[in-house]
């Protein structure tokens, strides 16, 4: 490791007594004392949430109100604090969505563990999980702080879908357009 000797600035006598510096500091703080507060009084005043804010992770539905998550568990895998826990399941025959084959039976996000990193959103191949503008989570018990699947969908709502990937697959399967 290289040692770089630095010349210290020699202090003047006034500086060595600290007094002028302390006085100028006192001036600064006194000026500040007379100015209005900078802070926001939280429960009454709420911050404006900018777009792209990483709030509580939620599950979203497509514009037809259908579940987008296919429980691939990539978010569970990528989650650094292991906050996500998914129980995968099969989509039952006759539900109209059996061509998706797989969907979450249970989807729990432990908000006591979540660090709001957004990796789950980034990794999701189905664009089913989004960190939205909800930022305030409270609860009296640990159990309350775990968002279950229904709560996640309630928080998430519906987001526009540019692809409708599974609809295209269904159409392809019904019309057999390849052959």
């Amino acid at each position: 490791m290289a040692v770089i000797p630095l010349e210290r600035k020699t202090l003047s006598l006034a500086e060595r007594t600290y007094v002028p510096q302390i006085l100028s500091g006192l001036k600064t703080t006194f000026k500040r004392l007379l100015k209005p507060a900078e802070t926001m009084e939280y429960p009454e005043q709420r911050p404006a949430i900018p777009p792209g804010y990483r709030g509580v992770p939620t599950l979203v539905r497509d514009p037809h109100g259908r579940e987008k998550c296919v429980s691939c568990q990539l978010c569970e895998f990528v989650c650094p604090p292991k906050a996500i826990r998914i129980t995968p399941g099969e989509v039952p025959e006759g539900s109209g969505r059996e061509h998706v084959e797989k969907g979450p039976q249970a989807f729990d996000i432990d908000m006591l563990r979540c660090i709001y990193c957004g990796l789950c959103q980034e990794v999701c191949p189905e664009e089913a999980i989004f960190l939205q503008n909800q930022y305030s989570m409270t609860g009296y018990t640990r159990e309350e702080m775990v968002n279950h699947k229904d709560r996640l969908y309630e928080l998430g709502g519906t987001l526009p879908d540019a692809h409708f990937k599974w609809d295209k697959k269904k159409v392809a399967a019904e019309h057999g357009n390849a052959h």
């Binding site: 703080t29 006194f30 500040r32 004392l33 100015k35 507060a37 900078e38 802070t39 009084e41």
Partner: peptide, 10 residues
Amino acid sequence: KVSAWMQGRP
């Protein structure tokens, strides 16, 4: 209070 005012807090 004084510290809060000096730090721009209420």
